[in-house]
Design a protein around this nucleic acid. Sequence first.
DNA 1: CGCGACATGTAATGATATTACATTGCGAAG
DNA 2: CTTCGCAATGTAATATCATTACATGTCGCG
Lengths: 133, 133
Amino acid sequence: MNATHQDLTRNQTLVLDTLAKADGPLSAYTILDRLRGDGFRAPLQVYRALEKLLGFGLVHRLESLNAFVACAHPHCHAHGLIAFAICEDCGQVDEFSDAVVRERLGAWSADNGFKAEKTTIEIRGHCANCAAA
Amino acid sequence: MNATHQDLTRNQTLVLDTLAKADGPLSAYTILDRLRGDGFRAPLQVYRALEKLLGFGLVHRLESLNAFVACAHPHCHAHGLIAFAICEDCGQVDEFSDAVVRERLGAWSADNGFKAEKTTIEIRGHCANCAAA
DNA sequence: CGCGACATGTAATGATATTACATTGCGAAG
DNA sequence: CTTCGCAATGTAATATCATTACATGTCGCG
Ligand SMILES: [Zn+2]
Ligand SMILES: [Zn+2]
Ligand SMILES: [Zn+2]
Ligand SMILES: [Zn+2]
């Protein structure tokens, strides 16, 4: 595990590159359309690649958008808990993490006997640039 | 605004009651099926009611499930930020809020000039009961 | 009554995701 | 080398979630 870029299959590489080149989140079907020229024909080709990439931590799913982004920090994977700030105007996504937030949510889980598997934090709003306009 | 239960229309009341009686989140189509006997025929009847109920704060949308729950605290809705702990085994949802988390995410937004409109926090995992089993 | 505002009814379509099954590529075991 | 097993891939069909478009109903108010 902890796969490097070299371990990726052709389809996984194509999907990851598509996300990396994009300026914002892409839906699975948008990825599919962008890869038609590379032989992609069916949604499953995209979803299967995404599934692996999500497992590798190279891609994140934005639940509130039903879309996907390449990880902004694929190296320093301190990925215990990630938060996303999503601009509704320009689509830009900012990925960050906060130790205090992680600690507080962890404390709630401990207090309530809840075994957390995955935490989603998504802030929808307007980025600095778009808010100015 | 700040609508009370009395202000609700028939369809809104039916949808809210369905959610309140359910033991967990329901998808829009599940709500539709449960209301066929009351004359519901089309998804839009559910989605329109949900849209209003979400606005009133009587219902929450769980982004990671594409499903909806009745608010657990429809009265003391001082919480500007709500978090959900969702059990993947039994479907139970626990709704809570944390002032420190709100403050930290607010601080990040302020630091980055981001104007937050809506924040989603969802923890997927296993509740105390199910984790024991 | 005549109008406007809002809720509702109905059909069609669009968008997102999964199931099922066949096939291919490739390294390990024999 | 051949066969086996496994993971990836290809393809079609289907399931699930959500919206658009347009017609109709209801009710308060001038
Ligand atoms: Zn990341
Ligand atoms: Zn922006
Ligand atoms: Zn609530
Ligand atoms: Zn449970």
